[in-house]
Design a protein around this nucleic acid. Structure first.
Lengths: 194, 194, 194, 194
DNA sequence: CATGAATGAGCCTTCATTCAT
DNA sequence: GATGAATGAAGGCTCATTCAT
């Protein structure tokens, strides 16, 4: 606006905005991972190399930023579900997805709380993307039940809760292997008693 | 000078110190439950009806307060373990304790993180009481393995991690029943494949 | 929102940053003078008509503010030394500068302690500007010695120390004249015994 | 008062009170020396092994404590003056006393400010003991003037101010020798121009 | 007389959010 | 659209002083 107001120049168009948005998201993910959902927005803006105002233009409220970070992760999970369902046996696919979930989501301190409220159904935010995760686990579980390998009294939700719980524990030197063992216990506990 | 507006007059004897300490602990537990470990200490003091300085006299650092709250909970769990082990069958005792754990510890947002670091072994605080929880779960699991009902490849730690995870999820209208189902899945997954 | 109640409206341009900075410095100098280096930063901010945060943006640590105040004073002294050296005889210049030092620096309670640590060489802050004062007194003394009017066993440092001491005493109804007499004693004590 | 109110027991009489008072004074001097006049009274009480209330009983206000510390020092100086005056020549006595002053008073951060206000005549406290120092320096200077060795236009006050100033500078590795040189300059500047 | 618990004002500091440029 | 300065509300913590026992 401070430009000579006659030329319709348009030098720095959307590209810049888009680039900023992405940089912010990237940094935000890292910061939320490091410090949890309370990470300083000022710090995020600074690390992303933008002014505080710019961050606020893109994400008017803290939750908007959290959700954006969260959604990008969730989309990866949903995609994986489709991939696994096509290429693996039902129980294998379930197990693989559960492991991916833990691996991927764990240590990302916002994600677990965010998912938490998804499961709880409490929060307004995340409304949009909750379907993605729920759909994924639901599909996997239903397929496994249909195949007869899994108890039919199992609530997909419960499994999701358990996974979220396990993800919370992501810390300590050995947590990766521990998580793996836990997934296996969950799987074992979910099988039909042949 | 602006006193808590409900009590008549109240002396201020030495017993008050103890009473204050307890009131602070009580309020702190509630606040930590509501808001997590970041709850405002000033607010806690206010709700407990004491000056900020009084809180600091009793608990010079935030961690001291957290630990005190945490320890009082943990002691209840350890006591329960002894009770259960005496009066129930191994698997029953384990299940009962797990349920108690979830019921009791859940929704208390400091506890889970605190236990987390116990499991992770990372934190200096809680050093003192970590043995209590670890001992409890360890005893229960070992007894169940010895009885032949439980897989002998099970790491007590893993179960604790799973419980902590489940506890994290404490929210939503149905979480109590969900937690119960999860515990049963964990138990089922832990049994020997007869 | 509660604005300083005297100014009409005032834009809030970028120039304001500079203006704020200066206002803060001004107030800080006055407050440090009144109360010493422990003056309340909150109070300084309030008197300068800015929010606490603004003060902290400009001077992240108390020492940054102290140093800024200190440096602006010291620069005036260094400038005066150059002026005096050009226009006066050696002993006159020295005396004039000493009087200026006392007049100028005195009653400014941060300055004296700050200079103190300059002389002591102890403090990290002020590192930058210590050269200025040291250089000034050094130049004046060396010139006076060279002229033969001053004892050649005189440590410029000592004179500086004495001046700082005298500056400390700045209070009481008669201190200005007293300081003047002291400077003269110091000068007299520094002359060669013809 | 909470004792059985019939026996006139009197087990812990003045001795204790006196001992406490002295211990407090001792500790206070050390603390004031370490931290200046802002030292924590709580800390002083603690180090003296008494309750905060006890300190307040003996010294109702901070200034009362400061003055008490101050006075005990000042009395030593006054005593020294009498001693020196009897055993030394006028100028020697003056010089010795000045050195003692610097040695003794220096590094005791309350003393200098306290004396400061004595000289300034501003403060109500210290009223009582100001005469002691003033008397000492006055006596020494007058005697030296009378002997013809000292300029008769010298204000004893001025010398005191200078000494206080020099005392302020007490820090840095070399301050003792520097202070000594300064005293000599002052003496030199005070002599009659033979 | 001594004790030490309690109080609460006051200071420092951080940070989300707004807004003029 | 971007920038970054300004704001002000919290919150943490300390400490002088009072007061019940």
């Amino acid at each position: 606006m401070t430009k000579k107001r006659s030329e319709p120049v348009q030098r720095k168009p959307r590209i810049d905005a888009q680039r900023n948005r992405e940089r912010i998201l990237e940094v935000a993910k890292a910061e939320f991972t490091r410090l949890g959902a309370e990470a300083s927005l000022d710090e995020i803006a600074k690390r992303a190399g933008v002014g505080a105002g710019t961050l606020y233009r893109h994400f008017p409220a803290r939750d908007d930023l959290i959700e954006a970070v969260y959604r990008s992760e969730v989309e990866k999970l949903a995609a994986a579900e489709r991939r696994f369902a096509e290429t693996m046996s039902p129980m294998e696919a379930l197990r693989a997805w559960m492991l991916l979930f833990v691996d991927h989501i764990a240590a990302k301190q916002i994600i677990a709380p965010a998912l938490n409220s998804v499961v709880g159904g409490a929060s307004k935010l995340f409304e949009g993307s909750r379907g993605l995760v729920l759909g994924a686990i639901d599909g996997l579980v239903k397929r496994a039940i249909k195949s007869g390998e899994m108890r039919n009294d199992l609530e997909p939700f419960d499994l999701l809760r358990a996974l979220i719980g396990v993800s919370h524990v992501a810390s300590g030197p050995d947590w990766q292997r521990s998580a793996r063992r836990l997934v296996d216990i969950l799987i074992a506990g979910s099988r039909t008693n042949k």
